[in-house]
Nucleic acid binder design. Sequence first.
DNA 1: GTGAAAGCGCTAACAT
DNA 2: ATGTTAGCGCTTTCAC
Lengths: 338, 338
Amino acid sequence: MSPTRVRNRRATINDVATAAGLSRGTVSRVVNGERYVSDEAKIAVEDAIARVGYVRNSAARNLVTQESRAIALIIHEPHSLLFEDPNIGSILLGANAVLSKADYQLVSLIIDSDRDSRRVADYLRGGLVDGAVIISARASDPIASAVRDIGVPAAFVGHPPGTPDLPYVAIDNAAAARAITERLIGTGRRRIGMIASAMDRDSGNDRFTGFRDALGERFDASLVVEYPLYTYAAGLEGMQELLRRCPEIDGVFAASDAVAAGAMTALQESGRKVPDDVGIVGFDDSSWALRTRPQLSTVKQPADLLGSTAAELVLAQIEGRPSLAQVLDTTVVWRESA
Amino acid sequence: MSPTRVRNRRATINDVATAAGLSRGTVSRVVNGERYVSDEAKIAVEDAIARVGYVRNSAARNLVTQESRAIALIIHEPHSLLFEDPNIGSILLGANAVLSKADYQLVSLIIDSDRDSRRVADYLRGGLVDGAVIISARASDPIASAVRDIGVPAAFVGHPPGTPDLPYVAIDNAAAARAITERLIGTGRRRIGMIASAMDRDSGNDRFTGFRDALGERFDASLVVEYPLYTYAAGLEGMQELLRRCPEIDGVFAASDAVAAGAMTALQESGRKVPDDVGIVGFDDSSWALRTRPQLSTVKQPADLLGSTAAELVLAQIEGRPSLAQVLDTTVVWRESA
DNA sequence: GTGAAAGCGCTAACAT
DNA sequence: ATGTTAGCGCTTTCAC
């Protein structure tokens, strides 16, 4: 049962004040743990709070303090990708860890329609959050410019072209792709292809660029296939297509681990051995990489650090500290697939 | 650039009223799209809003209306499981679709520490949301009883033992497990084992119960291994252990598709053929099921419907309609793995 | 150390 | 159809 309290109405600070025989001001001071309250008053208030079952109304508090101590994390992903992408969970957890420590509530808002997009923009505009991190926005995502217009402190994870000029955290996809492609070249592969994905996003586009640059003159556009999403299915089909175009292909860079896993299945179904006949590398170092046989050589991307850094960028802005874009390091993890 | 507005202060309804030469009341009516405003006034207000750059302050509005038009979705999962579980994304999207249509904002709150747990409880208590969906709470999860105590309209996805007496949506895990196990028995398997997972949750526990019941007298406890999480790794290790205990095993029920995929890898590494030597079935009909070779026979669980139904249960309570627990149907999807 | 009072920005009931 | 007014529940000067 709930404590004795006024029927049909949540107890307010006034009820507490009356019950404690003190003023609202004093109750407020106790509730906010301020100095200058006698032990006597403190006890009386705490006792009264328990008796009337008081809990503070956040709307009222936010109204007067003009802050909410909440940060939004906006996820705008195509349906299928939402939880197919192992990075999202890590980014979320990374951001939550930082915000939690700073005593901010992380609220995740997902955008799955234009209607959502508008509602989320209103949510931000209304002052219900003090800042926002925008995750994996596509190029020229309307929510991205909305965030800029609203003027709420914000940071992006990733840095798509057309993104408003706001702080971001990203990895250097092109450099990472170049590094792993060079390493693949170093194993003596002669005909190297790529299964590119998500070319409408910075990640997909830059990974392709890095691949092309690493190959230089040896780059062969006919050995590149492109799919809209980073999925296992894309890898499966893409590899089959590549095999059709060039049966002698002996090296493949897949735009993500999921894609690489699909490609490996296609390779094995075609009777080829990995890495003996064909070497294959992925990107992410997600749990996919350990699931394939042989295990995948891949690029390790610090997803949780991406999330925590973005959160810190937002906090910095709120506190008036400088908040600068950051590019995080990646490393190549070499296993058995190439 | 932002529109002409009072420096260093967001425009309020008063600024709009002054600029339009009308009263606050009229401005409020226009903003809320109420009847009884002349076209003339409407235009004047809209014009003034644009000029001063007015956006409504949600805290103030929520304070007077005593509602927020937001619903929380609380995710309390162990780290690794968070985005390993393909159902979560679907549940989220399902809930979002329903709430979006009803013009409610879905805010996802993740609990990853005790600190988070307290903060989320405060968030709910503070009146920042009008309702909550609690997803996959473990048995006796403290947040579950907190939600009950707070008294906010709520619904659970899943129905762990020890859960407060609140509406929930679930599938009948035991019945589904029984159905697919019986089908496996029907293929003539003699030594059937199970890789159980997450026995501290209703899903894991009930799937085991269903398996045991289906086998009846033929149930052999030594053919059951148990792991804390529904993961590929659990399947891999679990299958190796089962093979060690009983090399003649010819049928396996894995508690989830991810587990089944791991088990299949172990089986293949041991030189066994699926389904010829060993038949294997999973649970979820997630994207995992299509990724294995051969593809998995499994139980299809309507994850998005779980989310949308839970959201409807919450809306029903808010609107004072009856809100009853629901058990959703599952179906067996028979493919090639057994 | 505590009380009184003003006001955050908005809606809604009541006048007119 | 529009203006006036009284709060919503809280924090925060400013007195004392």
